[in-house]
């Protein structure tokens, strides 16, 4: 897959998709979106980049290995849940800041939890695709 056009366009598209994925994540509490779709869009961005520029390039662009991203996602989600415990409430109870922000709405631990979901889905998807994709390249 050595298409110059795809390689060029993919750089731009990947950036746009990543921004869009964050947008989906942030507005998910009030409009369609959220951690699952945001994470999938972000993963698609890296998959597209990998198809255009090869897996090693995609890996270096991801910066962290998928394993680390999965781990971070799970840890963030659990930390978001533990915040409830710190406040003396049951695990995963949502805590909220009173003042709303534009697009996102109010800030709270459920958003942090959704961020964890986002990273977990991103890491899972990229790990799966990279594992399946790289296998062939190395054997050739």
């Amino acid at each position: 897959m050595n298409s110059v056009i795809l390689a060029t366009v993919s750089r731009l598209l990947t950036g746009v998709l990543l921004v869009f994925s964050v947008f989906l994540l942030l507005r998910g509490h009030n409009l369609p979106g959220g951690g699952f779709s945001g994470g999938l869009v972000a993963a698609s961005a890296f998959v597209l980049f990998a198809f255009a520029n090869g897996f090693p390039a995609a890996r270096s662009m991801l910066f962290f290995t998928p394993h680390v991203i999965i781990g971070c996602g799970l840890v963030v989600a659990i930390v978001a849940g533990l915040a409830g415990n710190l406040a003396g409430l049951p695990f995963l109870t949502g805590l909220w800041d009173k003042t709303p922000l534009p697009v996102i709405g109010k800030l709270g631990t459920p958003l942090l939890f959704d961020l964890g979901v986002y990273f977990a889905v991103l890491g899972v998807t990229t790990l799966i695709v990279f594992s399946l994709g790289e296998d062939g390249e190395e054997e050739e």
Binding site: F36, L40, V121, V124, T125, I128, S131, L132, D135
Partner: peptide
């Protein structure tokens, strides 16, 4: 269903790797 969709993606990937 939303969770089921994502889970079945994981299952599919797992079976594909296993068959391979």
């Amino acid at each position: 269903i939303l969770t089921a969709i994502v889970i079945s993606f994981g299952v599919l990937a797992f079976t594909l790797a296993m068959v391979h």
